[in-house]
Protein backbone atom coordinates (compact mmCIF):
# COMPACT_ATOMS: atom_id res chain seq x y z
CA UNK A 1 0.00 0.00 0.00
CA UNK A 2 2.69 2.45 -0.91
CA UNK A 3 2.60 5.50 -3.12
CA UNK A 4 4.61 3.53 -5.64
CA UNK A 5 1.75 1.09 -6.03
CA UNK A 6 -0.72 3.88 -6.59
CA UNK A 7 1.28 5.36 -9.45
CA UNK A 8 2.13 2.04 -11.09
CA UNK A 9 -1.59 1.21 -11.22
CA UNK A 10 -2.41 4.69 -12.51
CA UNK A 11 0.19 4.57 -15.28
CA UNK A 12 -0.84 1.07 -16.31
CA UNK A 13 -4.50 2.03 -16.61
CA UNK A 14 -3.66 5.26 -18.40
CA UNK A 15 -1.38 3.50 -20.86
CA UNK A 16 -4.07 0.96 -21.69
CA UNK A 17 -6.79 3.58 -22.25
CA UNK A 18 -4.52 5.76 -24.39
CA UNK A 19 -3.30 2.80 -26.38
CA UNK A 20 -6.92 1.88 -27.07
CA UNK A 21 -7.97 5.38 -27.98
CA UNK A 22 -5.05 6.22 -30.22
CA UNK A 23 -5.26 2.95 -32.15
CA UNK A 24 -9.05 2.96 -32.64
CA UNK A 25 -10.20 5.74 -34.97
CA UNK A 26 -13.84 5.42 -33.88
CA UNK A 27 -12.77 6.26 -30.33
CA UNK A 28 -10.22 8.91 -31.20
CA UNK A 29 -12.01 10.92 -33.87
CA UNK A 30 -15.21 12.07 -32.13
CA UNK A 31 -13.23 13.71 -29.34
CA UNK A 32 -10.91 15.40 -31.85
CA UNK A 33 -13.42 16.39 -34.49
CA UNK A 34 -16.56 17.42 -32.63
CA UNK A 35 -14.93 20.44 -30.96
CA UNK A 36 -13.78 21.55 -34.42
CA UNK A 37 -17.36 21.35 -35.70
CA UNK A 38 -18.56 23.48 -32.85
CA UNK A 39 -15.73 25.92 -33.33
CA UNK A 40 -16.29 26.35 -37.07
CA UNK A 41 -20.06 26.53 -36.71
CA UNK A 42 -19.94 29.05 -33.87
CA UNK A 43 -16.87 31.13 -34.68
CA UNK A 44 -17.32 30.95 -38.46
CA UNK A 45 -21.09 30.97 -38.76
CA UNK A 46 -21.92 33.46 -36.08
CA UNK A 47 -19.15 36.05 -36.40
CA UNK A 48 -21.74 38.70 -37.20
CA UNK A 49 -22.91 38.39 -33.60
CA UNK A 50 -20.21 40.85 -32.51
CA UNK A 51 -22.18 43.48 -34.42
CA UNK A 52 -24.95 43.26 -31.83
CA UNK A 53 -25.21 46.58 -30.01
CA UNK A 54 -23.53 46.21 -26.61
CA UNK A 55 -21.26 43.32 -27.65
CA UNK A 56 -17.84 44.43 -26.49
CA UNK A 57 -14.99 41.92 -26.80
CA UNK A 58 -11.92 43.50 -28.38
CA UNK A 59 -10.12 40.32 -29.61
CA UNK A 60 -13.22 39.45 -31.65
CA UNK A 61 -15.76 36.67 -31.96
CA UNK A 62 -13.28 33.92 -32.90
CA UNK A 63 -11.43 34.31 -29.60
CA UNK A 64 -14.75 34.65 -27.77
CA UNK A 65 -15.92 31.25 -29.07
CA UNK A 66 -12.47 29.65 -28.81
CA UNK A 67 -12.65 29.87 -25.02
CA UNK A 68 -16.05 28.21 -24.95
CA UNK A 69 -15.04 25.39 -27.28
CA UNK A 70 -11.77 24.85 -25.40
CA UNK A 71 -13.61 24.41 -22.10
CA UNK A 72 -16.31 22.34 -23.78
CA UNK A 73 -13.77 20.00 -25.37
CA UNK A 74 -12.09 19.63 -21.98
CA UNK A 75 -15.32 18.67 -20.23
CA UNK A 76 -16.42 16.36 -23.04
CA UNK A 77 -12.99 14.72 -23.24
CA UNK A 78 -13.71 13.63 -19.68
CA UNK A 79 -17.15 12.36 -20.64
CA UNK A 80 -15.71 10.32 -23.54
CA UNK A 81 -13.29 8.77 -21.07
CA UNK A 82 -16.29 7.92 -18.89
CA UNK A 83 -17.78 6.02 -21.85
CA UNK A 84 -14.62 3.91 -21.88
CA UNK A 85 -14.89 3.24 -18.15
CA UNK A 86 -18.50 2.10 -18.59
CA UNK A 87 -17.42 -0.20 -21.43
CA UNK A 88 -14.67 -1.67 -19.25
CA UNK A 89 -17.21 -2.51 -16.58
CA UNK A 90 -19.74 -3.87 -19.05
CA UNK A 91 -17.28 -6.27 -20.66
CA UNK A 92 -15.71 -7.39 -17.39
CA UNK A 93 -12.30 -5.83 -18.02
CA UNK A 94 -12.74 -3.67 -14.94
CA UNK A 95 -13.03 -6.80 -12.79
CA UNK A 96 -9.58 -7.80 -13.88
CA UNK A 97 -8.30 -4.33 -12.99
CA UNK A 98 -9.97 -4.47 -9.58
CA UNK A 99 -8.42 -7.87 -8.87
CA UNK A 100 -4.99 -6.82 -10.00
CA UNK A 101 -4.74 -3.35 -8.52
CA UNK A 102 -3.39 -3.16 -4.99
CA UNK A 103 -4.62 0.42 -4.67
CA UNK A 104 -7.81 0.84 -6.57
CA UNK A 105 -7.98 4.60 -6.33
CA UNK A 106 -5.04 4.43 -8.72
CA UNK A 107 -7.54 3.18 -11.30
CA UNK A 108 -9.38 6.50 -11.19
CA UNK A 109 -6.12 8.42 -11.37
CA UNK A 110 -5.21 6.35 -14.43
CA UNK A 111 -8.42 7.20 -16.23
CA UNK A 112 -7.90 10.87 -15.33
CA UNK A 113 -4.34 10.90 -16.68
CA UNK A 114 -5.57 9.33 -19.91
CA UNK A 115 -8.32 11.93 -20.21
CA UNK A 116 -5.83 14.77 -19.75
CA UNK A 117 -3.43 13.43 -22.36
CA UNK A 118 -6.28 12.87 -24.74
CA UNK A 119 -7.63 16.36 -24.23
CA UNK A 120 -4.14 17.80 -24.74
CA UNK A 121 -4.21 16.39 -28.28
CA UNK A 122 -7.63 17.93 -28.90
CA UNK A 123 -6.56 21.29 -27.46
CA UNK A 124 -3.44 21.37 -29.63
CA UNK A 125 -5.46 20.71 -32.78
CA UNK A 126 -8.10 23.23 -31.82
CA UNK A 127 -5.46 25.87 -31.11
CA UNK A 128 -3.78 25.33 -34.47
CA UNK A 129 -7.11 25.67 -36.27
CA UNK A 130 -8.00 28.80 -34.29
CA UNK A 131 -4.67 30.44 -35.05
CA UNK A 132 -5.01 29.57 -38.74
CA UNK A 133 -8.49 31.06 -38.65
CA UNK A 134 -6.89 34.33 -37.57
CA UNK A 135 -7.76 34.39 -33.89
CA UNK A 136 -6.50 37.45 -32.00
CA UNK A 137 -4.94 36.83 -28.60
CA UNK A 138 -4.79 39.90 -26.36
CA UNK A 139 -3.31 38.20 -23.30
CA UNK A 140 0.38 37.47 -22.63
CA UNK A 141 2.11 34.19 -21.87
CA UNK A 142 0.93 34.03 -18.26
CA UNK A 143 -2.68 34.63 -19.31
CA UNK A 144 -2.58 31.93 -21.94
CA UNK A 145 -0.98 29.43 -19.56
CA UNK A 146 -3.67 30.25 -17.00
CA UNK A 147 -6.40 29.67 -19.62
CA UNK A 148 -5.07 26.22 -20.51
CA UNK A 149 -4.55 25.44 -16.82
CA UNK A 150 -8.18 26.27 -16.15
CA UNK A 151 -9.29 24.05 -19.02
CA UNK A 152 -7.09 21.26 -17.68
CA UNK A 153 -8.92 21.36 -14.36
CA UNK A 154 -12.26 21.36 -16.24
CA UNK A 155 -11.12 18.22 -18.07
CA UNK A 156 -10.37 16.61 -14.71
CA UNK A 157 -13.80 17.66 -13.43
CA UNK A 158 -15.51 16.11 -16.47
CA UNK A 159 -13.57 12.88 -16.07
CA UNK A 160 -14.33 12.54 -12.38
CA UNK A 161 -18.02 13.20 -12.97
CA UNK A 162 -18.34 10.69 -15.81
CA UNK A 163 -16.19 8.07 -14.07
CA UNK A 164 -18.41 8.33 -10.99
CA UNK A 165 -21.50 7.73 -13.13
CA UNK A 166 -19.84 4.90 -15.06
CA UNK A 167 -18.81 3.10 -11.87
CA UNK A 168 -22.30 3.31 -10.45
CA UNK A 169 -24.25 2.26 -13.55
CA UNK A 170 -21.58 0.03 -15.17
CA UNK A 171 -23.20 -0.12 -18.64
CA UNK A 172 -22.54 1.77 -21.86
CA UNK A 173 -26.26 2.61 -21.92
CA UNK A 174 -25.31 5.18 -19.26
CA UNK A 175 -23.83 7.45 -21.96
CA UNK A 176 -26.66 10.02 -21.99
CA UNK A 177 -26.63 10.19 -18.18
CA UNK A 178 -23.00 11.30 -18.32
CA UNK A 179 -23.49 13.56 -21.32
CA UNK A 180 -26.72 15.46 -20.73
CA UNK A 181 -25.88 17.20 -17.41
CA UNK A 182 -22.51 18.33 -18.79
CA UNK A 183 -24.17 19.53 -21.96
CA UNK A 184 -26.77 21.50 -20.00
CA UNK A 185 -24.23 22.97 -17.56
CA UNK A 186 -22.17 24.21 -20.53
CA UNK A 187 -25.09 25.64 -22.50
CA UNK A 188 -26.94 27.20 -19.56
CA UNK A 189 -24.16 29.75 -19.67
CA UNK A 190 -23.29 32.77 -21.84
CA UNK A 191 -22.21 30.65 -24.84
CA UNK A 192 -22.98 32.98 -27.75
CA UNK A 193 -23.03 36.42 -26.14
CA UNK A 194 -21.73 37.88 -22.83
CA UNK A 195 -23.89 37.53 -19.73
CA UNK A 196 -25.14 41.13 -19.87
CA UNK A 197 -26.68 40.55 -23.30
CA UNK A 198 -28.67 37.54 -22.11
CA UNK A 199 -32.31 38.05 -21.20
CA UNK A 200 -35.14 36.03 -19.72
CA UNK A 201 -34.81 32.65 -18.08
CA UNK A 202 -31.37 31.95 -19.48
CA UNK A 203 -29.98 35.09 -17.86
CA UNK A 204 -31.37 33.95 -14.50
CA UNK A 205 -29.97 30.42 -14.85
CA UNK A 206 -26.62 31.56 -16.25
CA UNK A 207 -26.10 34.01 -13.36
CA UNK A 208 -26.31 31.08 -10.93
CA UNK A 209 -24.32 28.62 -13.08
CA UNK A 210 -20.70 28.28 -11.90
CA UNK A 211 -19.67 27.52 -15.51
CA UNK A 212 -20.47 31.18 -16.29
CA UNK A 213 -17.58 32.26 -14.06
CA UNK A 214 -15.21 29.82 -15.74
CA UNK A 215 -16.20 31.09 -19.19
CA UNK A 216 -15.96 34.77 -18.30
CA UNK A 217 -12.60 34.32 -16.58
CA UNK A 218 -11.31 32.37 -19.60
CA UNK A 219 -12.45 35.10 -21.96
CA UNK A 220 -10.90 37.79 -19.80
CA UNK A 221 -7.58 35.90 -19.96
CA UNK A 222 -7.53 35.63 -23.75
CA UNK A 223 -8.46 39.31 -23.98
CA UNK A 224 -5.50 40.19 -21.75
CA UNK A 225 -7.60 41.87 -19.06
CA UNK A 226 -7.91 39.18 -16.38
CA UNK A 227 -10.96 39.50 -14.17
CA UNK A 228 -12.10 37.19 -11.36
CA UNK A 229 -9.56 34.55 -12.44
CA UNK A 230 -8.88 33.54 -8.82
CA UNK A 231 -12.57 32.90 -8.25
CA UNK A 232 -12.74 30.75 -11.40
CA UNK A 233 -9.79 28.62 -10.28
CA UNK A 234 -11.36 28.28 -6.84
CA UNK A 235 -14.64 27.09 -8.38
CA UNK A 236 -12.90 24.65 -10.72
CA UNK A 237 -10.75 23.24 -7.91
CA UNK A 238 -13.80 22.96 -5.63
CA UNK A 239 -15.68 21.03 -8.33
CA UNK A 240 -12.66 18.77 -8.82
CA UNK A 241 -12.48 17.95 -5.11
CA UNK A 242 -16.25 17.36 -4.80
CA UNK A 243 -16.37 15.16 -7.90
CA UNK A 244 -13.21 13.37 -6.77
CA UNK A 245 -15.19 12.25 -3.73
CA UNK A 246 -18.08 11.35 -6.06
CA UNK A 247 -15.81 9.19 -8.21
CA UNK A 248 -14.17 7.48 -5.21
CA UNK A 249 -17.58 6.68 -3.77
CA UNK A 250 -18.55 5.31 -7.18
CA UNK A 251 -15.52 3.04 -7.00
CA UNK A 252 -16.64 1.82 -3.58
CA UNK A 253 -20.14 1.22 -4.96
CA UNK A 254 -18.65 -0.86 -7.78
CA UNK A 255 -16.58 -2.81 -5.22
CA UNK A 256 -19.67 -3.51 -3.13
CA UNK A 257 -21.56 -4.68 -6.23
CA UNK A 258 -18.69 -7.07 -6.92
CA UNK A 259 -18.18 -5.66 -10.38
Amino acid sequence: MTGGHFWSVAWAVAWRVLHNVFTTPSLLLPGLVFPLFFFTAFAGGLSRVDNIPGFDFPPGYTAFQFVFVLLQSAAFGGVFTGFGVARDFEYGFARRLMLAAPRRSGIIAGYAIAALVRWAATAALLTVVAVLAGMNVGGGGVDVVALYGLALIVSLVGTLWATGVAMRLRTSQAGPVMQLPVFLALFFAPVYVPLDLLTGWLEAVASLNPVTHLLEAGRSLIAGSPADVGLAFLIAAGLAVALGVWALRGLRAAERAGA
Binding site: L46, R48, V49, N51, I52, P53, G54, F55, L180, F183, L184, F187, F188, P190, V191, Y192, V193, L197, L198, T199, G200, W201, L202
Partner: peptide, 18 residues
Protein backbone atom coordinates in the same frame (compact mmCIF):
# COMPACT_ATOMS: atom_id res chain seq x y z
CA UNK B 1 -35.73 20.50 -27.72
CA UNK B 2 -32.76 21.04 -25.40
CA UNK B 3 -30.79 22.63 -28.24
CA UNK B 4 -33.81 24.70 -29.23
CA UNK B 5 -34.13 25.99 -25.67
CA UNK B 6 -30.48 26.91 -25.11
CA UNK B 7 -29.90 28.33 -28.58
CA UNK B 8 -33.05 30.38 -28.83
CA UNK B 9 -32.38 31.87 -25.41
CA UNK B 10 -28.62 32.20 -25.87
CA UNK B 11 -28.83 33.87 -29.26
CA UNK B 12 -31.95 35.95 -28.74
CA UNK B 13 -29.74 39.05 -28.88
CA UNK B 14 -28.87 38.09 -32.48
CA UNK B 15 -32.24 39.47 -33.58
CA UNK B 16 -30.68 42.88 -33.03
CA UNK B 17 -28.17 42.32 -35.84
CA UNK B 18 -29.15 44.78 -38.57
Amino acid sequence: MALLAVTSAGLSAATEIP
